[in-house]
């Protein structure tokens, strides 16, 4: 069985690409991250066979978490079929030989870029995020020495300066993604560029791990941790979304992608979580622009 799969059962690759010592080092960083929710743990990020920005951090965390019995799902902006998701899924099919799936409910490990699946997570799942910039204070205070000190001393006034600027300029908190959160009342954390619509679901029964490969940081939100989105008393946090139902499955409570249809202003809004949308359509839910032939086929 394993012989016909390249890289498995031979000495070509260790299970899940990384060698055991590296995985051990990453697991130690993960354990420390879990022990201190929201704290950015430095780790010795390895060169991976993909460019920085494609999820090298997430891939390393996934590799350290995977066991042969796991079932892996990879999503990119909610979709299972985009380049990034497909290439990472293939990577682990080849190097770990684990089963893969597109269904959120069947997966034990989910690596994600920029979304949390719409289907509620359970306590036997691990969600791994790909993080481009782990430091929430980076664009306000460029000195890493200073931001680490600010984290250490819990000096987070500056984070609100960013939100203040948003309101002053746009009349509301215009930050729509990578919306800063405070984990367990202590560390301010960048939840990676997920839309702020997903922020309330950071409080989850699943273990959430964040890997930043280029920046060499790992952090974690343990199950059931308290995650609070920062806001002002008179401008409370608002997890906004496009004010439409999904054009394909009719869902009204999901995060939507806007798809431009033509050059005459035509557009449609569809669920960004493809698995959720497809499952709903299979259950018979229909949106305004669902293809008519699927109805005929039934």
């Amino acid at each position: 069985m394993t012989e016909d799969r390249p890289g498995i059962g031979t000495d070509a690759y260790n299970f899940a690409y990384l060698d055991e010592q590296t995985k051990r080092m990453i697991r130690r960083a993960i354990l420390k991250g879990v022990a201190i929710p929201g704290y950015q743990v430095p780790f010795a990020s390895r060169e991976m066979p993909m460019p920085y920005g494609w999820g090298t951090g997430g891939v390393q965390v996934t590799a350290a978490c995977l066991t042969p019995a796991d079932r892996l799902k990879v999503i990119d902006q909610g979709a299972d079929d985009t380049t990034n998701a497909v290439s990472i899924r293939k990577f682990f099919e080849r190097t770990a030989g684990v089963e893969t799936t597109e269904h959120t409910t069947e997966a034990t490990v989910i690596q994600t870029r920029h979304r949390i699946p719409e289907t509620p997570m359970t306590d036997d799942q691990i969600l791994v995020y790909q993080v481009p910039i782990p430091e929430p204070l980076r664009f306000l205070e460029p000195r890493e020495t200073e931001t680490r000190k600010m984290h250490g001393l819990e000096e987070y006034g500056l984070m609100h300066v960013k939100l203040y600027e948003d309101i002053a300029r746009h009349g509301e908190i215009a930050t729509a993604y990578a919306y800063p959160v405070k984990v367990e009342g202590r560390y301010v954390m960048d939840p990676s560029p997920i839309p702020k619509f997903d922020n309330p679901r950071l409080e989850s029964p699943a273990l959430q791990l964040f890997g930043a490969g280029r920046e060499q940081r790992i952090y974690a939100v343990p199950p059931y941790s308290k995650v609070m989105s920062l806001d002002f008393e008179d401008h409370p946090f608002n997890p906004s979304k496009a004010d439409h139902p999904c054009a394909l499955c009719g869902a009204e409570n999901t995060y939507l992608d806007e798809v431009i249809m033509d050059d005459a202003g035509g557009r449609m809004f569809v669920c960004s979580d493809t698995d959720y949308c497809a499952t709903r359509q299979a259950e018979g839910h229909r949106g305004a622009q669902s293809a008519p032939f699927t109805e005929a086929a039934e």
């Binding site: 306000l140 006034g157 500056l158 609100h160 300066v161 309101i167 002053a168 300029r169 002002f232």
Partner: peptide, 25 residues
């Protein structure tokens, strides 16, 4: 902070000591 508006510059110290009401700041 050159990248932050005048109001944000003045408000930073208030927010640093815990002010969380935009209108008051």
């Amino acid at each position: 902070r050159m990248g932050v508006s005048a109001g944000g510059n003045v408000g930073e110290r208030l927010m640093a000591v815990g002010a969380r009401h935009y209108g008051n700041i």
